[in-house]
Design a protein around this nucleic acid. Sequence first.
DNA 1: TCTATTCTCGTACACTGTACGTAAATCGAG
DNA 2: CTCGATTTACGTACAGTGTACGAGAATAGA
Lengths: 239, 239
Amino acid sequence: MTRDGGSGGAAGVDPQQLWLNTGRSGKGRRPAFSREAITAAAVALADSEGIEAVTMRRVAAQVGAGVMSLYSYAPDKETLLELMVDHVSGELPATGAPTGDWRADVKAVAHLQRDLMLRHPWLPAALSTRRGLGPHTLAFLERALAALRPTGLDGAARLEAFAQLTAFVAGHVAHEIAQAAVARSPDRAAAEARYLAAVAADGHHPELAEVLSAPARPVSPEATFTRFLNRLIDGLGSD
Amino acid sequence: MTRDGGSGGAAGVDPQQLWLNTGRSGKGRRPAFSREAITAAAVALADSEGIEAVTMRRVAAQVGAGVMSLYSYAPDKETLLELMVDHVSGELPATGAPTGDWRADVKAVAHLQRDLMLRHPWLPAALSTRRGLGPHTLAFLERALAALRPTGLDGAARLEAFAQLTAFVAGHVAHEIAQAAVARSPDRAAAEARYLAAVAADGHHPELAEVLSAPARPVSPEATFTRFLNRLIDGLGSD
DNA sequence: TCTATTCTCGTACACTGTACGTAAATCGAG
DNA sequence: CTCGATTTACGTACAGTGTACGAGAATAGA
């Protein structure tokens, strides 16, 4: 009996072996489930009930497996989370012909990432601890590097730029989601407003007081995102 | 018996009540510990052994309290994490006279945030789910808003700019930490290099292949950070 | 048919957050 | 001082977590 692989095969010391070795040897009992199905179930759970609902027991129940059967497909839960990240990255269109306007191309890349993160709100936090290097992530990286080619940046700099862009998008969306969560609940929003007003009234926070005193005109999140994104991108061409 | 407050007082529905109400009524048994001490112990634990080492039992042991005694100071663990975030924000110098060069001032703000996150590597991930609105965080926000004043942006835009800056720094540092963790372990780094080389050799990742084929000249993380920070800041004044 | 290999999954265990209840400390009032 | 009210301290208990172990079932090649 092995406890380190499964139909896909995952190693202990070498985290990258996860992504290779997906072939079956042919011998032994035929797998009843698949890494795909398990990962998809985990993603569905995280999407609908939040990342904390992703427990081995609930994922197993979702796919109709015994709990311990999951460990034939991923060596541990952390690995399952990595699989989840790459799984949703599969939703990103990896092909997108360079249009000749590299700014537009890079903008498109960032917007695809943002849309993905909004569809899977657990993703920004999951990415902040993990480095996605699965096939889907790498396919999208390929597209991003191609989009960045006309900038004239060298290879390392393009890699950096993509990492930076991803970090920016993740940070932005995380904030955006938190903001939206507060706004969705009127009591929460009111409580926060009351609290901030109290702080502003203490005299030690003049800047905050001024900001709060101004009429709060509504601004769409995507407008904000686009604005900051443009700033970041405009800086890319010039060294 | 109450289970909703303590020497500080924390409420159920109103998360902001956490930060108010820190006065003791005078009655009842005198507290043997303090929110400060408990939070500091939790932070020390997270700094030295990672955020997953922060369990109620270990924090209690650290301060010499019974486990359930912690619940007199924070209503639940999530609240303790919020306290931790604000606690470390206390390390940020809240005063820093505007120098007249607002770009430099904003840059200083970002660098202070980055240094803080490097000192407390769990902070980026913790921030990505939480919105710090504690006194220390607000004090630093005050400084940031003051630094942004000369940009000519209106209140809401300055608030946005700060949130964006924080999100950017958190995203960057999270990536920086992950990168450093891999680099610290030669086996990990070698395994990753081997894996990426294999992917690049498959013919389907020409961009990645090119990036990897170039000689990897070492580049300091702070240089990268500064470069991208400048790009972001340069875009702030316009529009 | 035999054996090696692979997958399935029930049971068990250490560990988590925390609800509940009791005991101890401290206050103001009488 | 005594008394009741109030607050804190914390042992015990419980549901839920990730997963180690090992016994059994299924399959392929010899």
